[in-house]
Amino acid sequence: MKLADATILVVDDEPELLEIFSVWLGRSGCKVLKAENGAVAMKVLNEQRIDALISDIRMPVMDGITLVRTIAEKGMLVPSIIFVSGFGDVDTREAHALGVEAMLPKPLSRKTLLQALEDSLKAREELWHTPLETPPAKSLHLTLPAFETCNGNCSFQIGRGGCCFATDESFDEDTLLQLTVEFTGEPNILDAQARVRWCDTKDSRMGVEFLYLAPECRDWVISHMTGRAMHTFIPRC
Score class of each variant (00 low, 15 high):
N37F: 04
G161V: 05
L113K: 01
L77R: 07
V90M: 13
E14L: 08
E19D: 14
G75W: 09
C217V: 12
T184F: 14
I57G: 02
V61H: 10
A214G: 06
T134R: 12
E94S: 09
V68F: 05
W198V: 04
P235N: 07
T201P: 01
R228G: 10
K2Y: 15
E173I: 12
G86F: 06
A116K: 01
I20C: 07
S22K: 03
P187E: 08
K111Q: 11
P60L: 12
W24Q: 04
M206T: 11
M206S: 07
A137Y: 05
K31L: 14
S139Y: 06
W24N: 06
P215F: 07
T175C: 05
P136K: 14
R124Y: 15
L140V: 15
F147T: 02
V32A: 06
L3Y: 00
A72R: 14
K74V: 12
A4I: 06
L53C: 12
L121N: 05
F83S: 01
D172S: 15
S155H: 12
E173K: 12
I54S: 00
Q193H: 10
V40E: 04
E209S: 08
L18E: 02
L140A: 12
R197V: 14
T92S: 09
A194W: 06
L140D: 00
N188P: 11
V40I: 13
E19I: 13
G75R: 00
L3I: 13
W198Q: 03
G159R: 13
W128P: 00
G185T: 07
P136V: 09
E16D: 13
A6E: 01
T180K: 05
W220M: 09
R110L: 01
L45W: 13
G227W: 03
A214W: 07
N151D: 11
I189W: 02
I81L: 05
S223L: 06
K111P: 04
K74C: 13
C163E: 08
R236Y: 08
I50K: 10
L190C: 06
T70K: 11
D13I: 03
R69S: 15
P145W: 02
L67F: 01
G99Y: 05
I8Y: 01
Q157H: 12
F210W: 04
S80A: 11
L17M: 14
P60E: 08
E19T: 10
K138A: 11
S109R: 02
G227P: 12
E125R: 15
H231F: 10
I50Y: 06
M42D: 09
Y212G: 09
S80I: 06
E36M: 10
I158H: 05
L45F: 07
E73L: 11
P107I: 02
D91T: 04
S28A: 13
E182N: 15
Q178Y: 14
L132M: 10
G152L: 04
P60K: 14
L176F: 03
W128I: 08
R197Y: 07
